[in-house]
Design a protein around this nucleic acid. Structure first.
Length: 672
RNA sequence: GCGCCCGUAGCUCAGCUGGAUAGAGCGACUGACUACGAAUCAGUAGGUCGGGAGUUCGAAUCUCUCCGGGCGCACCA
């Protein structure tokens, strides 16, 4: 509702400016005043115009208010301070409009945006070890953004890119074959044995991804431990293995496929615990074998984005100019980005350009597809050669979002630069590197986990996690720990419920706590992870918001009615103003207004690619609700009309909280 | 050296396209439960918004500069 009123006021002001002063400003600043005393919306536009019109801001504001006349939904306008124009809403009409606005779309506010086919890539964990907390941040941010895009009416494909032929997978293969000295047959048996053991015990320590976590760390260590000749040989082994995997068709490649597929399956299971699902898993093996790069290479050469370097340190390579680089005519750009090495192989950025041409439907090639993982009623597909004849369409998106940590901004910028250089400016503009900062551990947390923290690192605010070193908190361990902690609380409080119900509630709360924890920080803030903060269920947390919903739910249960009925009953109340105009009732109106911010917040989140605004909004709404809950005892209210109004207030807040939580991927438990 | 990010209360962080008295959580201290269940609420203390200069009617927000911290800048992915 707030968003609609803001737009209406903006249009009215625009009309006045055009008619009275013949001005057509691009943007009219509209804000929410710091205090309800000053109205619900305000604009400082008169200040900006003062110089241009050579008049005092206050005079301009007065003239504009006079010219505005009546605007539907507004009770009036006034001039305040040195020239603010403050707008007051018609409160009763506002409440009725808020009660009615159930839709989750901001369709009318973003012309052209709904109906957009968007593609979000997130998670993209190397399939060679268990997922850790850093990966959780990526997946939770990505999944939440997907929910926001869908709430705004966009069609979204969710992709999880699998680098199954990279050096990280090669490293665990080296670990299995050379460090452990296993034959390919023995590796097959071990993977099968791990899958059996995990299925039987349900303990993550038994699973293949946990096994690989340690093996990968040991292998990384092993490369570094070798001296002289041994180090050389180990390095050689590493690259021979990598090349065998990239090339395919060998026993080494088969082992890599086996391991990466088993680990990938585990990643999907881990993410499913958080309610995160994917539509398609494109793999690097197909990008290689289906010759995506060859097709892209032709286009890159034809458009002149790539050129062959004959001079300098990059002699013999195909290179591209970096974004923002300027080189004088005839000079060698030593700083250019190498895309094809002098030995003819293609770099990571090159493969990524090909993949992104495919994402936008510009490559002229497609993957093969087969079903890979089932989510209740639908399939997640994976790339392959050949594949099923019948499959959903992926790729060919109009807008893409890549959830990738901020350290990869340079390569991401290279890909965008290449698209632009190839003449795809529109696509380059709709390519968003949805970047975020890493999750690190506080030194205290690292030491609690038993890691050896060097003296000089102990005073640092945080220490980066490292899969290569096996240094970090595994995702499933954290989730288990959270569930155990919430279950303990639930068991104390929900003594009347059976074990299965309590378990379900504990899981909902644990996941709510985790997702909220990852979403409450803005993207470019480093999260210094600590169990104390992550396991907290009080204050600015997911459970706090869930608890507000449960409280509202309890009111309707005890009052033997429903939120829907309470909202519908609002229509029968003749005079709403009597509950909204008294000085002691300002908080009620403020609560309705907060509940009305949904569209505004959604738009802000999408415009800035920042889910944290929604997290903040949900918390603030819950906070105001808790405050309201204490101040007004609804079920014992003696004035029946007022009781109805209070019930409707609880109902609208509950509706908005549940909707906001669902966008955050957080469930609302029945009881807490 | 070049590029990007950060520096706001004891700690962790918000602060929308510059706008009206700088906010929250945690922690500290004081209070409020035979209940619409306190995973809650009320209150108190706590800030030269890293320093300086500039632009502006107006700067935590924009520009420059300095200080302090982080991350990138491969023929790795």
């Amino acid at each position: 509702m707030y968003l609609e009123m803001q737009q209406r006021l903006g249009n009215a002001l625009r009309g006045v400016l055009k008619e009275k002063y013949d001005l057509e400003p691009g943007n009219i600043a509209l804000e929410i005043p710091p205090d309800l005393q000053l109205g619900e919306l305000a604009t400082p536009v008169a200040f900006e115009l003062a110089r241009k019109l050579r008049k005092a801001p206050k005079i301009i504001a007065q003239e504009m208010v006079a010219a505005l006349g009546a605007v539907e939904g507004f009770a009036g306008f006034e001039v305040a301070g040195a020239g603010y124009i403050n707008a007051r809403l018609d409160r009763a009409a506002g409440v009725r409009a808020i009660a009615r606005s159930e839709g989750s779309h901001v369709a009318e506010s973003r012309p052209g945006a709904p109906g957009v086919h968007a593609l979000v890539e997130h998670t993209s964990i190397n399939p060679n070890k268990a997922a850790h907390i850093g990966h959780l941040r990526n997946a939770i941010l990505g999944d939440t953004f997907v929910r926001l895009l869908r709430a705004a009416g966009q069609k979204v494909d969710v992709q999880n890119y699998i680098d199954n032929t990279g050096v990280q997978v090669a490293d665990v293969v080296v670990g299995f074959l050379h460090l452990e000295g296993k034959t390919p047959g023995e590796v097959r048996m071990l993977v099968a044995e791990r899958e059996r053991a995990f299925a039987a015990s349900g303990r993550f320590e038994d699973a293949i991804d946990y096994f690989c976590w340690d093996l990968y760390a040991r292998t990384s260590q092993w490369y570094g431990d070798g001296t002289g000749q041994a180090a050389k040989e180990r390095k050689l082994l590493r690259y021979e293995t990598l090349h065998a995997i990239e090339h395919g068709g060998s026993e080494t490649a088969e082992i890599a496929e086996l391991i990466s597929t088993a680990v990938l399956k585990r990643h999907l299971e881990t993410m499913l615990r958080l309610g995160i699902e994917y539509d398609f898993l494109p793999r690097e093996s197909e990008i290689l074998h289906l010759k995506f790069w060859e097709a892209a290479f032709e286009q890159l050469k034809k458009t002149g984005v790539l050129y062959f370097e004959n001079e300098g340190k990059n002699k013999g390579c195909w290179v591209m100019t970096r974004p923002g680089a300027e080189t004088a005519e005839g000079e060698t750009d030593e700083d250019a980005k190498v895309i094809v090495r002098s030995n003819g192989t293609v770099t990571y950025v090159g493969k990524d350009i090909a993949y992104h041409l495919w994402k936008f439907g510009l490559l002229g090639k497609d993957f093969g597809y087969k079903p890979f993982f089932t989510y209740g009623d639908r399939e997640c597909w994976i790339s392959c050669e050949g594949g099923e004849r019948e499959h959903p369409q992926f790729g060919g998106a109009q807008a893409i979002y890549n959830v990738i940590d901020t350290r990869q901004s340079d390569p991401q910028a290279n890909v965008i630069q290449a698209l632009r250089g190839m003449g795809h400016a529109e696509q380059a503009d709709r390519y968003t590197h949805f970047s975020y900062e890493m999750v690190a551990l506080t030194p205290r947390c690292a030491m609690e986990l038993g890691y050896d923290v060097p003296e000089e690192d102990r005073t640092r605010p945080y220490i980066e996690v490292s899969g290569r070193k096996g240094f970090g908190v595994k995702a499933d361990d954290l989730i288990d720990k959270l569930i155990a902690a919430t279950l303990e609380e639930v068991n104390k409080r929900q003594t009347g419920r059976d074990a299965a119900e309590r378990q379900k509630i504990a899981e909902q709360i644990a996941i709510g706590a985790l997702r909220y924890f990852m979403l409450k920080y803005t993207r470019n803030s480093v999260i210094a992870f600590d169990f104390k903060d992550a396991l907290s269920f009080e204050g600015e947390t997911g459970p706090y918001i869930q608890y507000a919903v449960v409280r509202a739910r309890n009111i309707f249960r005890k009052g033997e009615t429903t939120a829907e009925a309470a909202l519908a009953a609002l229509a029968e109340l003749a005079r709403l103003d009597e509950f909204l105009s008294g000085p002691e009732d300002e908080d009620l109106w403020a609560l309705w207004l907060r509940a009305a911010r949904r569209g505004l917040v959604l738009e802000q989140c999408l415009a800035t690619s920042e889910p944290a605004y929604l997290a903040k909004h949900a918390f603030q709404l819950a906070q105001e609700f808790n405050n309201f809950y204490h101040r007004h005892h609804i079920l014992t209210e003696e004035n029946p009309a007022r009781k109805r109004f209070l019930l409707a207030t609880a109902a609208v807040v509950m509706r908005e909280l549940q909707l906001a939580l669902s966008w955050l991927g957080i469930e609302s438990p029945e009881a807490m």
